[in-house]
Lab assay of single mutants.
Amino acid sequence: DLSALRVEEVQNVINAMQKILECPICLELIKEPVSTKCDHIFCKFCMLKLLNQKKGPSQCPLCKNDITKRSLQESTRFSQLVEELLKIICAFQLDTGLEYANSYNFAKKENNSPEHLKDEVSIIQSMGYRNRAKRLLQSEPENPSLQETSLSVQLSNLGTVRTLRTKQRIQPQRTSVYIELGSDSSEDTVNKATYCSVGDQELLQITPQGTRDEISLDSAKKAACEFSETDVTNTEHHQPSNNDLNTTEKRAAERHPEKYQGSSVSNLHVEPCGTNTHASSLQHENSSLLLTKDRMNVEKAEF
């Protein structure tokens, strides 16, 4: 173990290094160091905050020279020094078990990766560091076993998940096959086929009936047209017969005018059967003409 005197000496050296690497504005270890034209180094955030307070150039807090945003430059070497100082402080805390008085939040800088452990060898070769390295080497064999167990647990979990997924996939297939086998029997399929065939026959029977009705309507229309044509021909046949009657009536009127007047009046009210309204109107006109002729003949006879 380190003596108290040596611990104090190391602590004083760390404090001196820390004062050199402090920012003059925030009085902390410089984060993202930036250098000016006057070779003074500050935190990048502190300098941008200072420049944004005034429009135009501002003055350096140490030498009062003008500073602009374009004049600022990043210093990589200074950032490396800060990183190495942080590593020294971490090693000091691990070796002594004491917390550094002016320690900052170094938890963000710590890294437990194997590459980081290899890099620590180049920091300080001390008894405390050696003991700590031995402890780490002793704890390393235990870690692979834990990793193997965790991997086995994960693989077993994956296997159970896969088996569950396969079961879920197989179950719908089985149910679907069961439904297909038990849903419709052979008799049901035959009945469905016969039902479809009967429906098709009914459709075939319905369509000819409609065509037959249309044919019957067409035949009825044709018969009505033929009947009207026969009526017209009958009226045409009746007209010459009426003319013959008129000639006979004229002759009778010349011989017996008194008797014919009474008979002509009675004939006005008689309509021949089986004739249309057109034929009756023609008869009325003929009878009126005959009456006028008879009157003329009677007057001539009187004179």
Rank of each mutant, 00 (worst) to 15 (best):
N234P: 09
R169Q: 10
T163V: 02
S75R: 05
I25T: 00
S263L: 04
P141Y: 11
E226H: 15
V232R: 11
I41K: 01
T163R: 10
K250W: 05
V10K: 00
Y260R: 12
K192E: 10
N157V: 01
L217S: 11
N12A: 04
S75A: 14
R295I: 12
K250M: 03
L29I: 07
E226I: 03
N102K: 06
I67G: 02
R162Y: 04
P257L: 10
A193S: 13
L136Y: 11
T233F: 11
D188C: 06
V270D: 15
K221D: 01
P272Y: 08
S126I: 03
Q261G: 15
C46S: 00
E140V: 08
Q93E: 13
K55C: 11
N297S: 07
I30R: 06
K259T: 07
L86Y: 10
C90G: 12
K69G: 02
D39I: 02
P141C: 08
A4Q: 08
T149G: 12
I25M: 01
S156I: 04
E258S: 06
R255M: 00
L50T: 02
L158H: 13
Q147D: 14
P141H: 11
M47I: 06
C225F: 15
T207F: 07
L289H: 13
D294L: 11
C26T: 01
K31N: 07
S156Q: 12
Q93H: 08
Q93K: 03
L151A: 05
S103N: 03
F106V: 03
N243W: 07
E22H: 02
I123L: 12
E202G: 00
E32K: 02
Q53G: 07
K19E: 02
Q201F: 07
R135K: 13
A91T: 01
K44E: 04
T68D: 07
Q283I: 15
Q138N: 08
T160C: 05
Q138D: 09
N286I: 04
Q168R: 07
K221P: 07
I20Y: 13
D95R: 00
D213P: 04
A220I: 05
R130F: 04
S145P: 08
T194W: 11
L29D: 05
A133T: 06
E249L: 08
L136M: 03
L290Y: 14
S75L: 15
V161F: 04
G159T: 08
C43K: 00
L245M: 12
T247A: 07
Y195A: 10
K19F: 00
N242Y: 08
D66F: 09
V198L: 10
Q18E: 15
S152G: 14
K69N: 13
G56V: 03
S216L: 09
S126Q: 13
N102I: 11
I215V: 10
I124Y: 14
H278Y: 06
V232L: 05
L48C: 10
V34I: 06
E285V: 07
H278L: 11
D95P: 02
D218R: 05
Q18I: 10
P141G: 13
D218T: 06
A4D: 08
P257R: 08
L282T: 03
N12D: 07
K19M: 01
R174P: 01
R212T: 08
S281L: 02
V34E: 01
S264E: 08
N15Y: 15
Q147E: 14
H256T: 05
N267A: 12
C60R: 00
K221C: 05
T68E: 14
Q205C: 03
I124T: 07
S113F: 04
A4V: 02
E22G: 00
N105V: 15
Q53Y: 15
A16F: 00
A101P: 07
A16L: 04
T230R: 14
L164D: 00
E22A: 01
V161N: 06
T277A: 07
L136E: 14
I67V: 10
K31F: 03
V7W: 03
Q11L: 10
P57N: 13
I14V: 03
D119E: 02
P33V: 15
L203H: 08
S281M: 07
N52L: 05
S3I: 05
N276G: 11
L136C: 07
F106R: 10
C26P: 01
A4R: 05
E202C: 02
K37M: 10
V190N: 14
L136T: 11
V232E: 08
I30D: 02
V34W: 03
S35F: 15
S150L: 05
E110P: 06
E84I: 04
T207H: 12
E140P: 08
K167F: 05
K87A: 13
N157Q: 09
L137A: 14
F42N: 01
F78I: 15
R162E: 13
V161Q: 00
C63P: 00
S219C: 14
I41W: 15
P141A: 04
K54A: 06
M127W: 15
K54C: 02
A223Q: 14
I20H: 15
T247E: 07
S280F: 07
K54L: 04
E9V: 01
T36K: 00
L5K: 11
N15Q: 07
D39W: 01
N143W: 11
V121G: 13
N246V: 04
T36C: 01
M17V: 01
N267W: 15
V7F: 04
N111T: 07
S152W: 11
R132H: 06
G199D: 07
N276R: 03
V7Y: 01
S156W: 02
L5W: 05
I41L: 14
D66Y: 04
E271K: 12
F227C: 09
S186I: 02
T160W: 12
E8W: 11
L94D: 11
K108F: 13
A224K: 09
N15W: 11
S241N: 02
S58L: 01
N105L: 05
S139W: 12
E142G: 13
K134T: 02
Q80H: 10
Q209S: 03
S156A: 08
S79A: 05
K69Y: 03
Q80F: 05
A4K: 00
S145Y: 06
V13I: 02
C38A: 00
N112E: 09
P33M: 05
F42P: 00
H284R: 07
H278R: 10
H40Q: 00
E110H: 08
E120H: 15
S126M: 03
H256W: 13
Q53W: 04
L203Q: 11
K19P: 00
F45T: 15
K293R: 10
R255P: 14
D39H: 08
L146C: 11
N157P: 12
Q125N: 10
E28Q: 03
N12S: 14
E28V: 00
S58V: 04
A107C: 08
R255Q: 08
C38V: 00
L136Q: 02
P272D: 15
M47Y: 00
I30Y: 04
T248K: 15
P33S: 07
E226S: 13
L85F: 15
L291Q: 06
Q11K: 11
L94W: 08
A253K: 15
K31Q: 05
R295L: 15
V270A: 08
S145L: 11
M17C: 01
Q154I: 00
Y104E: 13
S216Y: 11
K222I: 12
E148P: 11
G262H: 09
V82I: 08
T68M: 13
S288L: 09
D1G: 04
E22K: 03
V232Y: 14
L137C: 08
D231F: 10
L27I: 01
N246Y: 12
Q53M: 15
Q73H: 08
V7M: 03
S288E: 06
S228Y: 08
Q125E: 12
I89R: 02
E140F: 05
S150F: 01
D294W: 12
D66C: 04
K293N: 05
H278K: 05
A4N: 06
L204I: 07
